[in-house]
Design a protein around this nucleic acid. Structure first.
Lengths: 180, 180
DNA sequence: TCTATCATGTAAAGGGTTACATGATTCT
DNA sequence: AGAATCATGTAACCCTTTACATGATAGA
């Protein structure tokens, strides 16, 4: 009986309640008021996701009557949740990740600091750099192969992709320096 | 009776069959073998999407027995399809687009050349630059507000976002020059 | 008192992913 | 003859989006 893997939103919620217990509304507001908005802020996604996390035992809820008189249902992470979260954070990085799942990688890196060590973060960056470099060379090869036949728009879009990945590369190398 | 808007995959398919008639398989292979792979290549997405486009009269199919003896069901765009596609391509750009839908903007720019004029493409880039500049200032403001409290990872991820958007800005300005 | 915000959800509809299923043609 | 590739789909499952629904509390 293999456990269904968490969705990106579920991991985002898991990571946020790991930092500190929060209510569903606080989680919504976090997405709505920070640049993390791309991980969704609609209640129709967040509340069901929290239910699923609870059903699977990754988070538990409790009623918080300390911080205010108002009824608040706060969620906190469980030991099982921490295990799952850690496993996700520590997953080795593969080519597919940088091609398809850059959002997921950003999320992983953002949540890494409190659960993984400096060493793991640096390993992550090294793997990131390796895969990005490979993918940039793939993109450049493709760009050169179409450059004579493609339209101006086609070439420009390809350049956009290459420049975007080159920025990722620069960022990761600078980040590595910041760790040293 | 408002028509349901097309999904991103539907627009991608519409744009591709507008360039030239293609079979479902050829469309799948296009996604699978080019950097456009992020717009999906699974048959379970593409074939139903083609059916929907045909039901809505945006594309029609015909049997191509000219290029080979083999049965091939090719799709081509209809006049209605061109209208819908053009309307999508020419939509004015708003802040939400650069925050949430960069993929869609890339797709629109890539398909713009054959249906819209140079003037529209340049207008697109101007609007793009305007919205990106606004969003960068928002991100920097946020970055400065959290810089004293956030973790190293948090700051680094923010820098990643800012650098990524700055690259978009540089790209668009360079693209504008290429148009002149 | 009234409005904005805090706070928690549900329901319907739609699209995508994964996995499955099938058969023809081409190349070795 | 067999394998790889071409070619076209379907079905189950799951998640997200959009829209709706409700009520408490704090501040003007």
């Amino acid at each position: 009986m293999k456990q269904r893997p968490c969705s990106l939103l579920e991991f985002a919620l898991l990571g946020l309640v790991q930092q500190q217990p929060r209510t569903g509304y606080a989680l919504r507001m976090f997405f709505a008021t920070t640049p993390a908005c791309c991980y969704s802020s609609s209640p129709g996604a967040i509340y069901p996701a929290l239910q699923r996390l609870e059903e699977n035992g990754l988070i538990t809820d409790y009623v918080d009557k300390i911080t205010s008189l108002r009824f608040k249902r706060k969620f906190k992470i469980t030991r099982k949740g921490i295990t799952i979260l850690k496993r996700w954070l520590a997953k080795p990085l593969v080519q597919k990740d940088v091609v398809w799942y850059m959002d997921e990688l950003r999320l992983r890196f953002a949540f890494m600091d409190s659960l993984l060590g400096r060493r793991d973060a640096m390993r992550f960056l090294h793997e990131f750099i390796r895969e990005i470099e490979i993918y940039i060379s793939v993109l450049i090869k493709y760009y050169n192969s179409i450059t004579s036949t493609a339209s101006l728009h086609g070439r420009l879009i390809m350049r956009n992709g290459i420049e975007t990945y080159k920025t990722q590369l620069r960022w990761a190398k600078q980040a590595l320096k910041d760790f040293k």
